[in-house]
Design a protein around this nucleic acid. Sequence first.
DNA 1: CGGTTTTGACCCGCGC
DNA 2: GCGCGGGTCAAAACCG
Length: 305
Amino acid sequence: MERKEGVKMEDVLGSSSFSDYIANSFPLQSIFDLSSEGETIPLGFMELLGVQDLSPPLFDMAKQVPSLVTQAMNHSSTKIESPEVFNQPATPNSSSISSASSEAVNDVPVKVDDQEEDQQKTKQQLKLKKTNQKRQREPRFAFMTKSEVDHLEDGYRWRKYGQKAVKNSPFPRSYYRCTSTSCNVKKRVERSFSDPSIVVTTYEGQHTHPSPVMPRPIIGSAHLSSGISTGAQATFGMPMQRASSHYQQHQQPFSNSLSPLNFGYNGSINASFIHERRFCTPEPSLFKDHGLLQDIIPSHMMKEE
DNA sequence: CGGTTTTGACCCGCGC
DNA sequence: GCGCGGGTCAAAACCG
């Protein structure tokens, strides 16, 4: 059918063994400081997501994991070309993740002759696209979560469309696509070879719809909805511990360790984020502009800054 | 029966 | 040019 997305993306994060890279670069024990940080930040991970682009915590992490973040950024900056395709309806701030969906990319006018066989048609499209422009990549956002389940509930519905063995890893990588039509957010899920309890999830693309699963109240939603919210919130469905039944079952034993919720700002990071963006301009002013964190992050954390 | 998962095949980019 | 590895497709199987 819609063989549109033959757009291949060289994988910044997934190349060879991304998880190994992470694991090797950042000892998991330190990243997932499970024992010391008993306190639970009263934020849903989605809320954190809402400020993913702007929040100092991420930048703090960037400070703590500079090589990782900068590498991702370098990749994105060096490999992304012809950004003109990208529109950014949802992220008014240019520093946010570009909202280019591969749909949009694929909507690039492609002159196709009358009626070809579908596959040949799409293949031709791919070739045309490739000749006209370099492959477009979605912004990616990868993170590690300590979980026993591979596919973390994140409020969106995903359909698995592939699975591949990961080189040098006994654990396969699964490929998921958002089931919502016209939303082609994808995510990859793989388990860290170094620490099988770590699930590395990489989101790619931007949701063009609200979460179908949870009509969730958003902390500071007024600000979020007016600002970067759409882009940031809807961009990725972040795994989180949700009150949805079976998930609680699965993950409850890990309620302290699985932890997107336990995102530690005070020196210990319970989840490691790698944020790949096209326009990575971490500016403290962003934080000020949107005032998001004031809304969702306890003030004492702000002072940590 | 419709949606999801599985899985082998295929395509493509990249490195050598 | 070739081989390898990553990513995707799509038919079949599975499931509720």
